[in-house]
Design a protein around this nucleic acid. Structure first.
Lengths: 253, 253
DNA sequence: TTGTTTGTGATTTATTTTGATTATATATGA
DNA sequence: TCATATATAATCAAAATAAATCACAAACAA
């Protein structure tokens, strides 16, 4: 790998994780600390991130803001449009299951306006936001707290999902690939998503085009298990075509 | 965690709580008082908060109004003392179950200082607070959101409690009466508390003297089902005596 | 080939951060 | 008021982290 490539990837890594330590980057990229520091120095001089003792922080939204909202900034426009479109599948009286993640999170402001809606979620961030909405019935899956994604995972959460049946699940994913299907970096999250798919009559995938072609560690499902996939218009035409051919309704916004 | 991240979180913490003591921040963030003071000094110099003797105050009092802020908690002093005493029953490596409620909520600042502790709770308020604490394993019972008490109740939560076994449960109650036992105004809450008692090897009741002699709608348990009852010294002597006679360890603080 | 440039890692040196210690300052109650 | 307890500031030492320096190897040009 060339130095320039590595720097680009370091930047991407830090933007995704909001932060990274030198040690962490050392083991991810298999280079010495000296090299990582040199890279970080250059990236900082280019104004692309902020260094701290021990590592670096993503540059988005200077000042003091929670990690999560920093992350939502990436492709925020696409995510908002996708979330808004997804609301067409939500009707009065429905019971919907909301995955954790930045895209599904964008559905929150729309959900609050319903008069009768049951929202089940494993995201305590979503729960926290919807707490104010008087007219909703809110259900938490419970489980072990995963701080990174502000979600609840593990056997308890999966067991709870066995106990409920929902009309629709709104699912996010970290990576979507024609062959690998839906994948995420974390095994527990993947298990949860699987359980969510089982619990729902209809699976609606919210996934913007930046994730297409990526593959991550843990397999969630094949694309054919999805009923509806909402993405943005930057999605490559041939990917859209192939997914449609496999029987999935694809919506471009 | 980097220094800058810690400072960001300290600010967030203080804005949420309107205030924080140095000791409190020390246990939440696992750094020395010296470090906390240095952080507070920098934050003050940046104009982001106001320092006082013993801690710091949030700068903007508008906007943030926690549902049960310290001001609105009745008998806050007694509750804090009771909660502090209750911590004597919590040891490193324990798995503890925390009921929702204002008294158990006072245990939160103490819990954050443990290095190895599993906290199970049906209070999403407690969950929210402990999110900061890196060293804790946090488990949510899940269930239906009850906004009034910021808790999770219902069949899902009860089912989850069937799946776990904890060393100790720290239970709150709305009313304690020698004949009626423990009672609360809400049937679902009562069911939850029952399930909590079943899930725990030891039942520790946190209940200040203002609730003694009251009876509420839904029965939770007889007083004899409690192992330890922590209350304040205003508790009527004859009540204490009778409860002790029924085999309960009563602690006055 | 040979010399030069560039990127890298190892080593040494400098800096920063942190916690412990001690002295000083501030609050609280008799 | 003063005495006492508590909190803060100042100082220092240790640890972690960063920068500077050097040496080596690969890529490249003459």
């Amino acid at each position: 790998m060339f130095a320039e490539e590595r720097q680009k990837q370091i930047l991407q890594y830090i933007n995704e994780h909001a932060r990274a330590s030198v040690a962490e980057l050392t083991s991810v990229f298999h280079v010495s600390e000296a090299t990582i520091r040199r890279d970080l120095k250059e990236l900082e001089e280019a104004g692309l991130l902020r260094r701290t003792h021990g590592g670096a922080l993503a540059n988005q939204s200077v000042g003091f803001e929670p990690t999560f909202s920093e992350k939502t900034v990436q492709h925020a426009d696409e995510k908002k449009r996708i979330a808004a479109k997804a609301m067409e599948w939500v009707g009065e009286g429905d019971t919907v299951l909301l995955d954790s993640g930045t895209t599904t999170y964008q559905m929150v402001p729309f959900l609050a306006s319903f008069r009768a809606l049951t929202v089940v979620t494993n995201s305590y961030r979503i729960l926290q936001e919807l707490e104010q909405a008087e007219s909703l019935e809110l259900v938490s899956t419970g489980g072990i707290v995963r701080k990174g994604t502000q979600s609840l995972v593990g056997p308890i959460a999966e067991q709870v999902l066995e106990m409920v049946k929902v009309d629709k699940v709104f699912l996010g994913t970290n990576a979507l690939d024609l062959e690998a299907g839906l994948t995420t970096p974390n095994l527990y999250e993947a298990q949860m998503k699987k359980a969510m798919i089982r619990a729902a009559s209809q699976v609606i995938l919210l996934c913007d085009s930046s994730k297409i072609g990526n593959t991550s560690f843990a397999k969630v499902a094949a694309i054919s298990e999805v009923d509806v996939w909402i993405t943005d218009e930057q999605a490559p035409a041939e990917v859209v075509k192939q997914v449609r051919d496999s029987g999935v309704e694809v919506i471009l916004v």
